[in-house]
Write a protein that binds this DNA or RNA. Structure first.
Lengths: 222, 222
DNA sequence: GCAAAATTGATAGTAATACTATTATATTTG
DNA sequence: CAAATATAATAGTATTACTATCAATTTTGC
């Protein structure tokens, strides 16, 4: 994967000017990822970002309508990239069981190695997804933004995996519910582990969240 | 349940002045529930609430530090009340299976009938919980607030149900993860049904979310 | 029943946020 | 190299999230 340069396609409605098309745009995306991680999404502002990249706030507004749009952009980027990772990891594997196992691993573990894209740190981006992505759609404008296709990449991932579920259990009626529960659940359990540990379980095993969700899926499938 | 007046105890750190102790306090809580439902949490402000209850914004600040604290108060109230509902619904039932079924129903269905507390509309409050409660802990100050016990009521509920899980499967290592996944998952699936339906499953059955989570639990337990 | 204490109302004010607008200066590109 | 485009520098506005002050009202304790 390291040496193949893949271009992640982003819905143009997610930005005012493509950040991928200029030095400044790439700096905005790159530094916003670091800053959102450092400050948390609510404390992060375009003013602070402007100071960091030494460009005026108003220049950032030429790329993104506001910080919410930037978050939606990042989330969308992550899911497009993850769909590519999933395709790559599961292709040529005949057994649907094996494919599910690989997929669940990709969906429930934060990214640990940053290797493919120059100006996007995937490790930090995945941390944002795990801790902040829910804020991208938990807003008053969900319906409108959903209509505009802002969550398409995420939906594609859910669909792709629920199709594997249906290969194994064609009559199963809740494949999407199952997969979105697993994805969102894994994000939340990571958050709980770090912040409200009594809502989760401490096991002498760093892999307990993927283990839990893999078991959960196979219990339902059998 | 209708005629028993139960007092819900709230951690005094959750307010500056007990809203239950005065007319104004009760009005603040009562009207904030309506307004958060109407406007969504981010659009809701103390200024707007003040206009509605015809009291100055500054008076509201004498009860709650800010709107975040008010949300945490409401969430805490809901979970204390729900622990009482759970205790009431499961007491005297010998079979842990039966108790789990009752509990999952209470945790995964929004409240439909408002009957017990005078100035708190439980139907509207439950809607807030389903759509906004995640915002109560997904903040930069979780750790600090968790230390102060702000999420105690929620944790108690999770613990109570995971204890029933352990009755049925004493060696199960992920009881808390299972229950918090079910609770949070049910909230999210309701949100998805209303706003991003392709992340969930449309079944000709209004009860599909409780059904899904009940099946999920019994699949794991067997 | 009344003085003291506590609560609320009315009003003003501040710092930060989330933008929008304008114009000059740089940079790119046909 | 001129024209178009992008960026910098700066200013300004409405709203939010508070804090402060003091007068009016209500509650309470003797």
């Amino acid at each position: 994967m390291n040496h193949i340069q893949v271009k992640i396609e982003i819905n143009p409605d997610l930005y005012l000017k493509n950040p991928d098309s200029s030095e400044l745009g790439r700096k905005i995306v790159n530094q916003s990822i670091t800053m959102i991680n450092e400050l948390g999404f609510e404390t992060f502002t375009f003013k602070k970002l402007g100071l960091k990249i030494e460009s005026p706030e108003s220049s950032i507004y030429r790329y993104f309508e506001n910080k919410h749009s930037l978050l939606v952009y990042l989330v969308s980027w992550y899911w497009s990239w993850t769909e590519y990772r999933l395709a790559f990891a599961t292709t040529n594997i005949v057994s649907p069981k094996e494919r599910i196992i690989k997929a669940i691993e990709i969906l429930t573990k934060p990214v640990l190695i940053d290797n493919s894209f120059s100006y996007i740190n995937e490790v930090l981006l995945s941390e944002i997804i795990f801790s902040e992505s829910i804020k991208a759609y938990h807003t008053k404008n969900v319906d409108e933004e959903n209509k505009k296709g802002f969550f398409k990449a995420y939906k594609n991932v859910v669909k792709r995996i629920s199709n594997i579920i249906l290969e194994l259990k064609p009559d199963y009626v809740f494949p999407n519910m199952l997969i979105s529960t697993v994805i969102e659940g894994a994000h939340q359990q990571h958050f709980f582990t770090n912040h409200i540990p009594s809502l989760t379980d401490k096991v002498n095993d760093d892999n307990s969240i993927p283990t839990f969700y893999t078991e959960l899926i196979f219990n339902i499938l059998k």
